[in-house]
Each structure stands twice: as structure tokens, then as C-alpha cells.
Design a protein around this nucleic acid. Sequence first.
RNA 1: GGGCCCGUGGCUUAAUCAGGACAGAGCGACGCCCUUCUAAGGCGACGGUUGUGGGUUCAAAUCCCAUCGGGCCCA
Length: 646
Amino acid sequence: MRASRYTDSKHKRKNMKMDKTNILADMLDSIREKLGLSTIAEAKRYFKIELHEHSCDFSISFALRESKRTGTPIDQMAGDIKQKLSSLPFLAKAEVVNGYVNCSYNYSYVVDRLCNAATDVYGRGEETNERIMIEHTSVNPNKALHLGHIRNSVIGDSLSKLLKFSGKNVTVTNYIDDTGAQVADNVVGVKFLGMPYGKDGVRIDKYLGDEVYVKVNSMYEKDPSLLEKRAEVLKAIEKGNNEIADFTQEMVNRVLESQLKTLGRFGIFYNLINYESHILTYKFWETAFNQMKSINAIKLETEGKKKGCWVFPINGQNPEEDKIIVRSDGTVVYAGKDIAYAMWKHGLLDSDFRYVKLYEQKNGEVLWATTLDERADTSHPKFNAVDTSINIVDVRQTYEQEVVKAAVEKLGKSKDIKYIHYDYEVVALSPNTAKKLGLEVKEDKEMFQMSGRKGVYINAEDFLNSLKDKIYEETKSREAITSEEEQKKVAEALAISTLRYELIKTDPRKMLVFDVDEALKLEGKNAIYINYTYARLINILRKAGENKILKPNTDNLNLNGYEQDLVGKLLMFPDAIETASASLDLSYLANYLSSTAISINSFYNSVNVLNAEGEMFQFRLWLLDSVGKIIRSSMSILGIIPIEKM
RNA sequence: GGGCCCGUGGCUUAAUCAGGACAGAGCGACGCCCUUCUAAGGCGACGGUUGUGGGUUCAAAUCCCAUCGGGCCCA
């Protein structure tokens, strides 16, 4: 099993599921038994798939690793293993090479079993009662989304789709900091500095973020006394029931609505909006604070520089590292509110919010929000008290997240709290792109942080539009689609798919240094390549006619290497889903999808399907149909919108 | 001052957690392939002392120690 830094060992060493469609797991279990190992996960450590250079389908390195422990020579041990495996029906061949036992599938057997398994729901996990809450996006409601935010949202959205696909009960929330300094900055601009509240033809989030927020912040630098205005606004917001607070709430919702529109364009939707202010109004912080005091999770410092502060000891040893939760003036730090929120997520607070239905989203699901209204809708689904919460928060907030995790685990007492900080690196700008945005570029710097406050960032929709224009130009020159309307639709879908795929396919812990020119080059095995592969595949199935897709005769299958390759990909699909979802690793699935697309194109060029005869025609058509199902499933998880003609 | 993350061909990267076969791809540049299901495609050749130096091991990109470069956090 692939490991993960997001899930600890006790969660990841689960057995592979033994449902009857996961043929690979079934085969692995037979091998596990022959090797005398207790779990499939253990057997998997010695198992390596796809080794064309060694002309086999998978190899077992058990002898190589274990011979020293048992004192048996490697070759003798490998020979024994080969003997033990000889009776397995799914193997055509096993041979000992360099201490490995190299095995080849019996394709007739494997294809025969896949015929029954590879249906439209192939790879889907059985539904479980495990409840997971994913929090993602959580952008301050004072500006338009930039590419860094979209990295967060796209990861969160695809993770939720992946976990739903593997059978989990997932709730997706977006946490809105409607009481923070950034929102207050905009209020200062509009209410005290006479800046207009909106601009014709410019979306409100973009206008406030680009003009008001940036301008107000540069004014603070020239005239620090203005900061008193912000403090005043913050106080008014916290107090509530006044003109400033009402105005702020209205502005927050207008910006949020605009942000959600952008996210909707990317195909990203939520179950619930959580307002930070409600954590305060519902007195969840007080409850959390009292609970922490009652079990001595936090203590009041009586001396030293933290005198008068309530602190949370992170490791219990070094008082220097104690985290201040409540300052000596009685105000709560961010982490404090986050702890209360995390306690709500995991059902550690006695009470719950009230909720209101906002509207039905384009994906057909209702969007709910927390509300202060007494006449709230009680028909809402159960949102909180989940088993696992996955919190998509960028790597710069690791320390805060550690505090929250440690606190909520302590407060959970005997309950097994799985609080996961899914940290990812930020999107930075290349020197070339930073220069284009008007930033002063020093020679030795390789990257530049985006900054909403300084107005130095790549607006997500603006970039998406450039990408769309670029793709549209290309689309126009294609013959597959003729109407302009259709071409624009394809360009939009491909632009979204491309951007989402680029943000998902690499390791989230690697910083993404974004260069506009490079990003618009559209090179490589990107989402367009994957979609093109899909369109070609669909084209063949369409021409053949749906009624021609039948179960092939598997008696005397004689497959070429590319066909074998695709059968192997089919076999691996349930495992790819399971591995990706157990380790929360989307790039693993992205790589699987990409390599499957490569295999399809190689197959496409090596043989002809429609002109094949008899059994070969049946087999190839079935193969394409089945592979089509797995790439459709993978694409939908990764947010690639399927296009059938391009 | 303390801590975390990243470093693999010109570029983007896989494999690192749990050591295992000549480090696997893609892009770019080079050569070939459309009278055959969509050439937004395929095939081929080229390109690597895995930042550096030690150590452990039959075996190190992977583990340990040091060090350099880039980024981040805490104080």
C-alpha cells in the first residue's frame, strides 16, 4: 500500500477490500496465502506491477528480502515460491530471475473475470457508515479567488469526489471568516474613506479585492492612524446589531456569492457554508474554553512574559512552546476559534448551529448555511460529529493546525479523533510573470509569493479565460466540431479540465511556480490529451453501435502487448482508487489516468478495432468499452469534463 | 536561536514512507509514420556520477550523519 503523510499508520494499514470486483485483490490474496503472510497489505510490499522490460506482468521480491532472515539461499527460496504458485489459475507463467519470481497473467482467465466485474460502477467502494468532513477553499470574503486559492479548492473538491466514489459519506464545507481584518479593510474603504461600493461591469469580489483592499492597505502604510478605523470596525462587527455589522454581513455575502460563482464554473460545490461569526454568536468559543479549562487542557500563566494568558502546552515539556490561546487582554487568537470549530466538527460540543437552505446548486445538491435565524430549517441533514475531518489548509499554517489537532485530540478523550491537516504548498509566481504583474523583480529571486494585499496575484477566472481563448483558437481549426457555439463549449470545458488537472497531478507538497507563458503552451500529457483519447475511444464505440458490445469469447485469447497492457490497467483500477483514497493521494490517480490514456493511444495505433474480425472484434470492442468506463470514472473524480467530439 | 518542506537529464516530473532488477515518464530539440476507427495522435534515437561529502548494507534516489541551495513557520 502506498503510504501517506496525511494518514498515520493505524489508518493506512487497512486490508484491501475483498469485494468480488477487485480481482487484483483477490489474486493478491491467493498469493498472500501461498507466501504465508497474514495481510494483503503485507503481501503488497513484495509486489510490483507492470514490468514490461522484464517481460512479465508482476514480480514478487519476497525471496530477495526474506532469505537472510530465514537463512535459505535466495534462489532456493524463489524456486519454492514459484512451485507454490504453480497451481494458481490466474497465472500462465512464473519464473525465477535474479531472485525475483516473475509472473504473467493467464489472460483468458483474467478477462473472463473482468467481463463480469467491469460495469459502470466498477471500482466504486461499498458504502460505509464512515463520515468524513472536508473543509476547503475558506478564502477571506473580501476578494476574488486567485490561483493559489483554486489549488486548495480543486484538491478539496477532487478529494471529496474520490472519497465519495470509494463509498464514504462526505460533507463538504467552506468556512467564511466574516469577522477578520481583511473584510474590515474593505469596510474602512467604503464606509470611512469614501470609496465607491461597486463598479459597473466589474464583479464585486474583483472590484473590492483589486481596488478597495489594495488601496486601503497602501493607505495604512502612509497613515498608520487609519488602523484605528479598522479596530473600530472590527469591534462593531464583533458586537453586532449595528449599522456597520449589518453592512459587513451584506458585503460578505455579495462577495461570497461571486466567489461561489467562480467555483461553480470550475464545477466545485459545497454542502455547507460555515460563518466564523456564528462560532462567536453561538458562544461555541466559550463552551470550548470552559471544556478546556475543566479538563486542564489549558492553563493560566501566572508569571513570565505570558503572564495573564491562557496557554495550551503543545508538547508539555518546554514552556517556551506553549501556545497562547487567550491573550492577557481576553481576546481569542485564531487557533482558539479553530479549536471550537474543530470540536463542533467532531461532535465534542453539546450544541449545534441552526441551518438554512440557500439554494440548489448546479450539481443538484442543496447548499446550506449556518444561520442565526430562530425560524431555521430543521430538515437539514446531520452535518457534524464526523469520524474524520480533512482540513485543506496551506503549509504556512502548519503550526496553528498542529495546535488545533493536539487540542481536539486531547478534548476527545477516549474518542478516536481523526483530525487531518491536509497541507499543500502555495502557488508562487515565476520572475517573468511577477514582472508582468508590475512587481519589482530582483535578479537572484527564483519565485515570488502572490499577495492579495499588494494586488500581486493571478486572478483565477482571468487566467481561465486566457486559457479558454487559447484553446478556442485551436478548436476552431479542428474539423470534429463545426458550430461556433459547440466550439466555445468545448474550449470552456477543456480550459477548466486543463487547469484542474495541472493543479492536481503533482505532489501537493511541492511549490508550484507559475509562469503564464509556460502555462499557456498546453504541452505534455495534459487533460486535453486525456480527453482527446477519450473522444477517439467513444468515436469507435459510437461507430460500432452499442448493441455490438458483447461479452467476448475468452477461450483462445492471443493478445498483443498493448492489449495486455490495457487489461492490466483494468485490473488495477479498483486498487488505484483504493490506494489514492486511503492515502489521500490524488496525483497517484492522475498518474494512473495519464498512463492509461497513453496505453489507449498505443493500442489505437497498433490495431484496428472496427475492421477486426470475429472474436478479435468482440474482444477489442469490449476492451475499449470497459476502459472507457474507468477513464470516465477517473476523469469525473479529477474534474475533467468529458468531451465526446473534439 | 528553534523547527518544517523541497532539491532527480535543458524544462516539468515518477519511484523515497516500508532499501531490491540497467532511476520510469512527459515536454523541448532530432528522425520516421495519415488512400486504414479523429495526427489535439503514434513509433524511434538522444539526454542522468538522483545538489555535495561521508556512513550503514549483499544491495542506497530511498535509511543515518554532515553540508550547500531554494522556500516556509515559530520565537
